[in-house]
């Protein structure tokens, strides 16, 4: 499952990043390392970007980025 597919209000655990080079470093640097718990907070009115709670900070990410994050949804 991709982070993009996580429904608003749901939590998930990061499994791995499929991003490469600069994009990968950037995502890692934001705290999206494996096993990190993220929560989908809200979508912008147009549906993209989406805001996620990542390690205590609410960050808006475009689907181009969240498509590169594989997750496992937490129930």
């Amino acid at each position: 499952m991709l982070l993009t597919q996580l429904l608003t209000g749901k939590k998930a655990r990061v499994v791995r990043l499929t991003a490469r080079s600069q994009k990968r470093r950037r995502l890692l640097d934001l705290g999206l390392i494996p096993d990190t718990v993220v929560k989908s907070i809200r979508r912008s009115p147009a549906g993209d970007p989406t805001a996620y709670l990542i390690r205590g900070t609410t960050l808006g990410l475009r689907s181009e980025e969240t498509n590169l994050v594989e997750i496992k949804e937490l129930s």
Binding site: R26, L59, G60, R62, E65
Partner: peptide
């Protein structure tokens, strides 16, 4: 092409 976008929504 558009580059990546990250934006913090501060409290």
């Amino acid at each position: 092409i558009p580059s990546s976008f990250t934006l913090e929504l501060p409290p």
